[in-house]
């Protein structure tokens, strides 16, 4: 079971539809990094709309993936987090630093385009 990675302009979209178990998580991170390198992507959107539960293990996988992508020059936006998931992670004391968040794919895309635009302007 792989996590599909789609290209939208200069951005990549990874939709997590399956449970990120150990083996899937490793493959996911490798696939994402390879896709960023191959496409010279300016940003990465990770869509977690399909996840109704995000425990600290999965949260760490997502966060690590974002950190890895940033080292390759692709800032990451996590989109589609459900309200109950946000509440649960916060109550657990989990801090989602190092990745941007947005409500949905559209807003995530706008956010990344804004960041890419500022980079070009500078």
């Amino acid at each position: 079971m792989k996590v599909p990675i789609l290209r939208i302009g200069r951005m990549l979209l990874a939709s997590v539809q399956v449970e990120l178990r150990d083996t899937v998580a490793d493959a996911f991170q490798q696939d994402v990094l390879a896709a960023i390198e191959k496409n010279g992507a300016d940003g990465l959107i990770i869509d977690i709309t399909a996840l109704d539960i995000v425990d600290s293990y999965v949260a760490r996988v997502l966060l690590d993936t974002g950190r890895m992508a940033r080292l390759l020059g692709a800032p990451t936006v996590l989109v589609g987090m459900r309200p109950a998931v946000a509440a649960t992670l916060t109550r657990m004391g989990f801090v989602m630093d190092d990745v941007y968040t947005a409500l949905n794919i559209d807003e995530g895309l706008h956010l990344l385009q804004g960041i890419a635009g500022r980079r070009l302007g500078a």
């Binding site: 109704d52 539960i53 995000v54 425990d55 459900r82 309200p83 109950a84 998931v85 509440a87 649960t88 109550r91 657990m92």
Partner: peptide, 10 residues
């Protein structure tokens, strides 16, 4: 409710 379900399940 969905919040309590997510909390217990997590």
């Amino acid at each position: 409710d969905p919040f309590a379900t997510a909390a217990l399940t997590t």
